[in-house]
Amino acid sequence: MTTGEVGILKSTLLPSFGLYSGLSVAAYVAAERTDRVEIKDWLWPSGQVLNAWWTAIGRPMYETGTSFNDAWRGLTWTEKLLLGGVTVWGSRLFARIVSRSLARGRDDPRYDAQKNEKGFWKSAFFKVFLPEAGFLSIISLPVTVPFSMGDTTLSLSTNTLNTIRALGVGLFSSGFALEVMADTQLELHRKERDDLCRHGVWSLVRHPNYLGDTLVHLSFLLLNFTYSFHPVVFLGPLANYVFLRFVGGDMQTEASQEKRYQAENSPKYEQLQNWRGENNSFWPAWKDLTNPWAFAVAGCGFIGVVVEEVVRSNCTLR
């Protein structure tokens, strides 16, 4: 196994793209038959979890005939953190997307304009579903490369590695907590009121759920530094950021909101315009760092670091 581009392509990118493109075919068929583009969103978190588990556990079991327990015990602590992190994040997000989809009973309004385009479903697989499979293949690099590439380009002291691990765990805990709080607060708000949710973590930025997702994927990058690191993993959080900012995240969401609110809900449209002048879309402004909710998110990160340290110490003692 080489660590160059050819090695990465054969060991990680091509298998990942093969998995995601196959799942995308199934998602496309289901989406076309139900006229619901949002089914592709079900694949986004679940596909990453499946890919990580296949690369870390499934492939060794298939290729060497080892048992599940032996494959799990063969993972380092950092690899278990990576696998556990992507599993917790992806499983929660998948449950959130599916439950919201079933409760709504129709397609996500963000995709209505796309479906109105002539011949949309004839080209949707190549214009929408397959490109997302490509993005996923790159985004997944931090949770697949460590399980398929056995070497590292770094030589760091134990104290440095422990510090980086703590930063990664703290960043994951903060990002995950931010996503959970954003979704929970938005759900509660919608049950009580019909205006925009601008309180809680939504007072930090206009899209705290996307910010939380970005922090989670950055944490996977940091955890790579502590064991099996290859520079190609930098592409993972970068691709995730590009997608969330400019392809299928806050830009797409606000474009849909602006169009719908302007046509159907003038007060909400005016709220959106005012909100844009008060809060950033994705990254908090300096003034927002003193917001009590920013301290709450940071506190969750600190708790995550403490819990991980306690669990790791107990496992080491055993």
Rank of each mutant, 00 (worst) to 15 (best):
G90S: 08
R92L: 09
V25C: 13
L19N: 03
K118V: 05
A95T: 09
R110Q: 08
W121M: 00
S16M: 11
E79L: 05
F17A: 08
W54N: 00
Q114V: 03
R92P: 01
L50C: 07
L19H: 05
R36Q: 14
S67E: 12
Y62A: 12
M61L: 08
P15K: 08
W42D: 03
R106G: 10
A30L: 11
L75P: 08
E79K: 07
T78A: 07
S11P: 02
F129R: 02
S21H: 07
A103R: 10
A26F: 09
W44E: 00
L14W: 15
V37L: 03
G119H: 01
G22D: 14
W53D: 02
F120Q: 03
W72G: 10
A52P: 04
V25E: 11
Y28I: 07
I97P: 00
I39H: 02
F120C: 02
S123F: 01
W89R: 04
Y111I: 03
K10L: 10
S99R: 14
G85H: 02
Q114F: 10
L19P: 00
V98I: 11
W54R: 04
T64G: 06
A113V: 14
Y28A: 03
R104T: 13
W53R: 02
L13E: 01
E79R: 08
R36H: 12
D70L: 10
R110N: 06
L82V: 13
L43K: 04
L81H: 06
K122C: 03
E79F: 06
A56C: 14
A26V: 13
D112P: 02
W42S: 00
W89M: 10
N51P: 01
S21T: 10
G58R: 03
P109D: 06
D112T: 15
N51R: 04
D112V: 14
K118Q: 07
K122V: 06
T34N: 07
P60Y: 02
R104D: 13
K122L: 06
T64N: 14
G47D: 01
A30E: 08
E32N: 11
E32G: 04
V128F: 07
W77K: 12
A27N: 14
E63W: 04
R100K: 13
G85D: 05
L93E: 00
G65C: 11
A26E: 14
Y20N: 12
P60A: 05
F129I: 00
K80W: 13
E79W: 07
G90I: 02
A26W: 15
G74Y: 10
K40H: 15
N116A: 14
S24H: 11
E117T: 10
A56V: 07
A30Y: 13
W42E: 00
S101D: 15
K122M: 05
T66S: 07
I97W: 04
A27P: 10
R73W: 15
A95H: 11
G105K: 09
V86Q: 03
A30R: 07
T12V: 12
A113D: 12
G105H: 09
F126Y: 05
S99D: 12
S101M: 07
R36I: 02
L14T: 14
G58T: 00
V49L: 15
P15L: 11
W72I: 15
A52K: 01
F125Y: 05
L13W: 01
S16G: 15
S21K: 13
A103V: 11
K10C: 11
L9D: 12
R100I: 06
P15N: 13
G18I: 09
L83Y: 00
Y62R: 08
